[in-house]
Design a protein around this nucleic acid. Structure first.
Lengths: 180, 180
DNA sequence: TAATACTTTCAGAAATTTCTGAAAGTATTA
DNA sequence: TAATACTTTCAGAAATTTCTGAAAGTATTA
């Protein structure tokens, strides 16, 4: 397995971006390679192509399966396990989006909800709670919005995204309609 | 400077979440403390309250200023520099959102644009380019959408978010309108 | 100008994350 | 059942990130 310059560049880049997107370098590289490679790949092929140890590949694949981004496949007559992306690019984006929503918003919402149940004992604590309420309201609304996006079917989502700046206009109309 | 249990909990939590949101533990803690504390704080107060070194506070403050999340202030008759959040909670969310869009999408869009300019030499490379085009289209649309959100004024954004699941309905209307 | 009161920098230490590769585990074939 | 062909686990090594605190830098006051 030898990668073209172009594939190589993409794989390395996804490795670097991995940590920004929620996984580590190796996981990013494995995901990129499985995504652009037309055929399913096995763990040995991945280790060889990416120059990483067999054990590391195993851990990376485990994580990508936990994210539900890749799937195991068996090739007839071959005892090895092969892997492919679990869906289209759009499906993968939705999975990453939802997982990140969970990791980045849910824990904080839970904490704030707890803190807001406490009865403030001093003037200072009252002020603190007011700030927390503000943060809570913001995150709660972000969360609702993210869920609304996530619950759309891919087609509608695609349409929405492709509207680009037209979104603002449409939303404005919607808002007025809602208010009136 | 002694923190209430409630403030303490929030500060520690923001420290833990920091890395998910794009900064490190200390930076997260400093931001949380400045946000919920009603008065501006100086570097010594932050170091003491968070039990971290003075140098670390200095680096954290520098980073938060680079993000434009906090501002320096001077108290009359005091030589120390004091810090407060640079805007409302909503302003801060917008800044973080935009910064993350830049860091998480722009570099990949740039790379893909470059790769797509190359002329594929083999059948394999053609297939790879097709995949890259798919990824590019998705990220490009995500990017346009993120920009549309970002360019809205906070009021409209707030209205939109508060519509919750109603968003889907309104967007659907918009989509139909666009298509017809 | 010198002394004072602050802030910033940065080399190395500490903490954390990632990775390797040998050993253990599992499933298939002979 | 034993041998073979794979996969997973995990202790410790390597790499990376974060943090400390002393030294250097800067601005204000005497």
């Amino acid at each position: 397995m030898i990668l073209s310059d172009s594939s190589q560049a993409l794989v390395l880049h996804f490795g670097e971006m991995g940590s920004r997107w929620g996984f580590n370098r190796t996981v990013g590289q494995i995901l990129a390679l499985l995504t652009i490679h037309p055929e399913p790949l096995n763990a040995d092929q991945l280790a060889q192509a990416l120059h990483i140890s067999r054990g590391n590949v195993s851990m990376g694949l485990k994580e990508l399966q936990a994210w539900r981004l890749i799937e195991r496949q068996h090739q007839p007559g071959d005892r090895k396990e092969y892997f492919t992306p679990a869906g289209s690019i759009w499906d993968m984006a939705r999975v990453v989006f939802e997982e990140r929503r969970k990791r980045e918003l849910d824990p904080t919402l839970t904490l704030l909800r707890q803190q807001l149940l406490e009865t403030p004992q001093t003037h200072n604590e009252t002020q603190t709670q007011e700030k927390m309420q503000e943060i809570y309201d913001l995150l709660e609304q972000l969360n609702t919005f993210a869920n609304a996006l996530h619950d759309m079917n891919p087609e509608r989502l695609k349409t929405l995204m492709s509207m680009g700046s037209g979104v603002s206009k449409v939303l404005n109309f919607g808002a007025k309609k809602k208010v009136s």
